[in-house]
Design a protein around this nucleic acid. Structure first.
Length: 887
DNA sequence: TGTCTGACTTGAGGGCACGGCA
DNA sequence: TGCCGTGCCCTCAAGTCAGACA
C-alpha cells in the first residue's frame, strides 16, 4: 500500500470565485454552444456506435426515412431493421392493419398498450376544457391514496384504469390509431419528415473548436479522453493507468455473457410483418441497430423566446467573471462520452475527505431504575444517539429498540449494572439536547454567521477536486458521522449502531501524480490509496451496517462527469422512442407464447412499460421486504375478472404502491396462469429475474434496461403534456401547466411525500383570507354604486369613514381584489393537488432537462421559474438546447 | 448459471436559510 | 422586527445493473 504523506498543499485558496455556482462560470452562451456541440458530437458518435450505425448514416437518415424503409422492405434479411419513424401513412396502411387482422385481439391490445400517453394527453385536453388551472378533481378524499391510484383517478373513468380513456380517445381520434404507440407530439414530428433527434441536437456535422482549446490552463487532457472507436459493453480490465498502490487487480474476462436463448426466437420487432419470420434467427438488437436512425433534423424554426433566452443569458451572464485569477478552470463542459470501464479521467487531484469532530462528552447521566448511572464516553455517545431520537417514530418500533440494545449492551459489557433497556430513562440527555438546540437557536445572526464561516473555512479545501485540470465540486466530501441506522419501513437493521468511520476505513482514489491527501487525524493513515481512472469515486469506505456494501465519495451533480452520464441516460431514453413501437408489438405477441419464460418476460415488460414499475432485484433477508416487478409476489397482484389487476405492494423506500388497472385480456390470463397453484408468498414471475429481463431487453435495443422505460415514459409524458397543454397567457399560468405535467409524471413514477404538518392550518388560513377579500369586494361594489351616484362611501366594518374614491379608482381596486382572490384560489388548488406528490424527484432524475429548457424558450418562461440554482448547475449541459427540441 | 461485488443512480426526509408579511 | 412558511440543500438509505467469479 502506497501511503504517503505530503506537505500541506493548499489547492484552491487562490480562487475568489469558489462559491460561485459552477453553472455561472460559463463565459457565454455561444461558448456553451460550442462546448455542447463537442459533446453532442461525441455523444452522437457513441450512440451510433452503440446501435451499430455510423454517424453518417444517422445524418443521412434525416428526412429520408421513407427511402430507408423502402430499402428495408427490399432487403429484409440484411437491411437494417429500422424502427418506424418516418412515413406514418405507410405504417398505417401496410403494417397496422394486417397486424390487427392476423392477431385477432391485437387491435385492442395495441391500442390500449399506449394508453398512458394518450390518457395523460386526454387529461391535458380536459385541462384545457376546464381552463388550464387544475380543477377540483383531486379532492381531499384522494389524498391518502397512493399516487398510482390517483393517476387512475385522474382519468375520466374513476372506476376503471387507463383503458376506457384510451377507448374514448380512440373514438375521438380514430385516424390516429395506427400510430398510437407514439404520442401525438411525436407524430407531428415524424410527419414533418424531419425530426429533432438529430440535427442540431446531435450535431454530427458541426465542426467546432475543441473545448480544450478554450481551457488553457491545464490540460489538453480532454483531447486525450476522446472516446475510442468501439464502445465495449463490458467492463474492461483495468488499464495501465488503473492500478492500486497496494494491489493490482487482475480481472478475468467474463465467461458467459449471454444472449438469452430467447433472443434468437424473439419475434421481429419490425413492423413490416411480411419479413418478420425470415430473420428471426438474428437477434433483434442486431437487426435493429443496423437500421435504427435516431436522428431527425429539426423541423420548422420558431421564434426563440426573448424572455426565456434573456433569462438564461442573464443567469449565465452572472458567470461572466473572468477566470483570470483562478489557477484552474471550473467545470463548464461535458467530458467526452465515457462508458463503463473506460478511462474516466487522466489527472485527478483532491484533498480527501473531512471527518466529523470527535465526540465531546456532556456528562449528563441517564437514569437506571431512577438512579443516575456513570457511563464511559463511548457508552454515553451511543446513549445520546438513542436519547435524541425520543420524538421520532422509531421509538415506537420494537425492532429499533432491540437492535439498539443489542449493540449498546456490547459496549456496556456483560457485568454492567444496566441489564435491561426498559429500566433506563434517557430523559436527562434528551432534555440536555433540547437545551443545546435552543441555545443554538438563540444565537445572534453574527454568531451564526461566524460559526458558518468557520465551518466553511475548515471544509473549503475538501469541497473541490481538479479533474483533468478542471475545478469540480465534490459532492459528499463529509464522512458520515456515527449514529443509529435509520432504515426505512420495517428494516430489520434499524437501530443498529453505525460506528464511527476512521481514516483506516477509507480508500482514496486519486491521480497517480497527485499528492496523496494528508490524513486529517494525526497518527492515522488511509486504508489504501488507489489510482484507478476507470471509476469516478474519490474515496469509499465499507458501510458499517452492511460491510459488504460501500459508501462512495463522488463529484457533485453539477460536475462534467455527472452531466455526461446524465445526458447519456436521456439519449438512451430518447433512443427507446424509436424502438418502442416494435418492442410493444413484440411483447404483445409473446403474451400468448407457449414458452412460459418468454410469456413472463412479455408480461413483466408490459408492466414495466405501462406502470413504470422498477425492475425489482432480489433482496436479502436482512433488507426491508420491498418488491419490484420481477420480485412481485402472488399476493401483491389480485386478478379481478374480467381483466382488472389490483396491485398492492411496498416498493422502493417502503413506499406503498396501490393501483388497479384494466389490462389486456391476454395479460390478465397470463397473470392468472402465473398465479395458479402458488401460494401468496410465492414469486409471481418464478422464471424471471432482472438479469434475464435485462438481457432480453438488450436484444430489443442496445443498452436497454428496465429503468430506461421509466425515464422514457416520464420524459415523453412531460414533452407531450407541455406541448398539448400550453396556452398563451400569463407566465404564472404556464407554470401551472408545467407543474401539472410534472405532477402527472410524479404520479406515474409513484413519487410520494408526506403531507406537511401545517398543511391543514395553511389551507384554513388561505380560506379565511379569501373570505376577507370577498367581504372587501362586496363593500367596494357598494361603494362603486354610490360613487357613481355621487354619494360618499359607507362606513367600514370598523366604523370608520372610508376615503372618498372616484369610480375609476374603485373599479381598479375591485379588479385588483379579484386578481388577489384568483391567485389565492390558484395557489390553494396547486397546494392541495401537490400535497402528497413530490415533484422534485422526477425533475431531478427522470425529466430530460432539454424538454423544459426548450419549452421555456418557446413560451417565454424564465428558466429560473422551473429550475432552481442547483438544477441550473446540474443541467448546464442542456441550457443551449434548440427551442424546437422535442424528446 | 447463479451469486457476489462494485459502481453508480434514485429517493425521501430533515434542517435551515431566506423572504414575505403583519 | 419577529414570526412563519417555503423551498433549497444535504444526507444517507435504497435501489439498478454489469462484470467477476465459483
Amino acid at each position: 500500500m502506497a501511503v504517503e504523506t505530503f506537505g500541506k498543499a493548499p489547492m484552491f485558496d487562490d480562487d475568489d470565485e469558489d462559491n460561485m455556482p459552477i453553472v455561472f462560470k460559463r463565459s457565454s452562451a455561444s461558448r456553451q454552444n460550442q462546448l455542447n456541440s463537442e459533446v453532442k458530437h461525441s455523444q452522437s458518435q457513441r450512440l451510433n456506435q452503440l446501435s451499430g450505425r455510423p454517424g453518417s448514416d444517422a445524418c443521412s437518415a434525416n428526412g429520408q426515412s421513407s427511402n430507408a424503409q423502402k430499402r428495408m422492405t427490399s432487403l429484409p434479411k440484411t437491411s437494417p431493421m429500422r424502427p418506424e419513424i418516418g412515413s406514418q401513412k405507410a405504417a398505417k396502411s401496410s403494417i397496422q392493419e394486417p397486424l390487427v387482422k392476423s392477431l385477432g385481439t391485437t387491435l385492442k391490445v395495441s391500442d390500449s398498450m399506449d394508453s398512458r400517453p394518450k390518457q395523460l394527453a386526454n387529461a391535458a385536453v380536459k385541462e384545457e376544457n376546464d381552463s388550464i388551472h387544475p380543477t377540483q378533481e383531486n379532492s381531499d378524499s384522494e389524498d391518502d391514496k397512493p399516487l398510482s391510484i390517483r393517476l387512475k383517478g385522474n382519468s375520466n373513468h374513476p372506476s376503471k384504469g387507463p383503458i376506457p380513456t384510451v377507448q374514448k380517445n380512440k373514438i375521438k381520434k380514430s385516424s390516429e390509431d395506427s400510430d398510437d404507440e407514439v404520442p401525438l407530439s411525436s407524430k407531428f414530428q415524424m410527419k414533418s419528415a424531419s425530426g429533432v433527434l438529430g440535427g442540431k441536437q446531435h450535431g454530427f456535422h458541426e465542426k467546432k473548436p475543441l473545448d480544450s482549446k478554450v481551457h488553457q490552463n491545464g490540460s489538453t487532457s480532454r483531447d486525450k479522453l476522446q472516446k475510442p472507436a468501439v464502445v465495449s459493453s463490458k467492463r474492461p480490465l483495468p488499464n495501465a493507468d488503473s492500478h492500486s498502490s497496494s494491489q493490482i487487480s487482475s480481472k478475468k474476462p467474463k465467461l458467459s455473457d449471454s444472449s438469452t436463448p430467447l433472443s434468437t426466437n424473439t419475434v421481429s420487432l419490425k413492423a413490416k410483418q411480411e419479413v418478420v419470420d425470415d430473420d428471426d434467427h438474428i437477434p433483434i438488437s442486431q437487426r435493429m441497430k443496423m437500421s435504427a436512425a435516431v436522428n431527425k433534423s429539426s423541423g420548422s424554426k420558431k421564434t426563440v423566446s426573448k424572455v426565456a433566452s434573456s433569462s438564461i443569458k442573464k443567469t449565465l451572464k452572472k458567470s461572466k467573471k473572468p477566470v483570470k485569477k483562478s489557477k484552474y478552470v471550473k467545470s463548464t463542459k461535458l467530458l467526452p462520452s465515457s462508458g463503463d470501464g473506460q478511462k474516466k479521467w487522466t489527472t485527478l487531484v483532491h484533498n480527501g475527505v473531512i471527518f466529523p469532530p470527535p465526540y465531546q462528552t456532556h456528562g449528563v447521566k441517564i437514569l437506571h431504575k431512577g438512579k443516575p448511572v456513570d457511563l464511559t464516553t463511548e457508552q454515553e455517545e451511543v446513549a445520546t444517539m438513542f436519547a435524541v431520537m425520543k420524538d421520532t417514530d422509531y421509538m415506537q418500533k420494537p425492532k429499533f429498540k432491540e437492535n439498539f440494545w443489542n449493540d449498546w449492551r456490547k459496549l456496556l459489557g456483560k457485568n454492567h449494572v444496566i441489564q435491561n433497556l426498559d429500566d433506563c430513562d434517557f430523559t436527562p440527555i434528551y432534555d440536555w439536547y433540547q437545551t443545546e438546540k435552543e441555545k443554538k437557536k438563540q444565537m445572534t445572526t453574527e454568531e451564526k454567521k461566524a460559526l458558518k464561516e468557520e465551518k466553511l473555512k475548515q471544509e473549503e479545501k475538501y469541497m473541490w477536486a481538479i479533474l483533468d485540470g478542471v475545478k469540480e465540486k465534490v459532492g459528499n466530501f463529509r464522512v458520515e458521522p456515527p449514529g443509529l441506522f435509520r432504515g426505512r419501513g420495517e428494516h430489520p437493521k434499524m437501530g443498529k449502531l453505525k460506528k464511527r468511520i476512521r481514516p483506516s476505513d477509507i480508500t482514496i482514489n486519486i491521480g497517480k501524480d497527485a499528492p496523496i491527501p494528508e490524513c486529517p487525524i494525526p497518527g492515522q493513515r488511509w486504508k489504501e490509496v488507489r489510482h484507478d481512472n476507470t471509476v469516478t469515486w474519490l474515496a469509499f469506505w465499507n458501510d458499517p451496517i452492511n460491510p459488504k456494501e460501500f459508501k462512495y465519495v463522488f463529484l457533485a451533480a453539477s460536475s462534467s462527469l455527472k452531466g455526461q452520464s446524465d445526458k447519456e441516460k436521456y439519449e438512451k431514453a430518447r433512443m427507446l422512442k424509436d424502438y418502442i413501437k416494435n418492442i410493444r408489438n413484440s411483447y404483445t405477441k409473446d403474451f400468448t407464447s407457449k414458452d412460459p419464460t418468454r410469456r413472463q418476460i412479455a408480461v413483466a415488460t408490459y408492466l414495466i412499460d405501462k406502470l413504470a414499475l422498477r425492475a425489482g432485484n432480489e433482496k436479502d433477508d436482512d433488507e426491508a421486504d420491498t418488491v419490484g416487478c420481477c420480485t412481485l409476489k402472488v399476493e401483491n397482484v389480485k386478478a379481478v375478472p374480467p381483466n382488472l389487476l389490483e396491485f398492492n405492494f411496498l416498493g422502493k423506500d417502503s413506499i406503498k404502491y396501490e393501483n388497479t388497472v384494466e389490462v389486456e385480456l391476454p395479460v390478465f390470463k397470463a397473470i392468472t396462469q402465473f398465479q395458479s397453484g402458488k401460494s401468496g408468498s410465492d414469486d409471481l414471475f418464478d422464471k424471471l429475474d432482472t438479469s434475464k429481463l435485462n438481457a432480453h431487453l438488450k436484444d430489443l435495443m442496445p443498452g436497454l434496461t428496465a429503468k430506461v422505460f421509466r425515464t422514457y415514459n416520464a420524459s415523453i409524458t412531460l414533452d407531450d403534456m407541455l406541448n398539448r397543454g400550453t396556452k398563451d397567457g400569463e407566465v404564472s399560468e404556464k407554470i401551472v401547466t408545467y407543474q401539472h405535467a410534472n405532477k402527472e409524471v410524479a404520479i406515474i413514477c409513484n413519487h410520494q411525500r408526506t403531507v406537511s404538518k401545517s398543511h391543514g392550518a395553511q389551507m384554513t388560513r388561505l380560506n379565511e383570507k379569501i373570505s376577507e377579500l370577498r367581504d372587501i369586494l362586496k363593500e367596494l361594489k357598494i361603494d362603486l354604486d354610490r360613487a357613481k351616484k355621487g354619494k360618499p362611501p359607507l362606513k367600514g366594518s370598523d366604523g370608520k369613514q372610508k376615503r372618498n374614491l372616484t369610480p375609476e379608482a374603485l373599479e381598479k381596486k375591485i379588479s385588483q381584489t379579484n386578481a388577489k382572490i384568483e391567485k389565492i384560489e390558484r395557489d390553494m388548488k396547486t397546494k392541495e393537488d401537490l400535497k402528497t406528490v413530490a415533484l422534485g424527484t422526477s425533475k431531478i432524475n427522470y425529466l430530460d432537462p432539454r424538454i423544459t429548457v426548450a419549452w421555456c424558450k418557446r413560451h417565454e418562461v424564465p428558466i429560473e421559474k422551473i429550475f432552481n440554482k442547483s438544477l441550473l448547475a446540474k443541467f448546464a449541459w442542456a441550457m443551449d438546447v434548440d427551442p424546437d427540441f422535442r424528446f
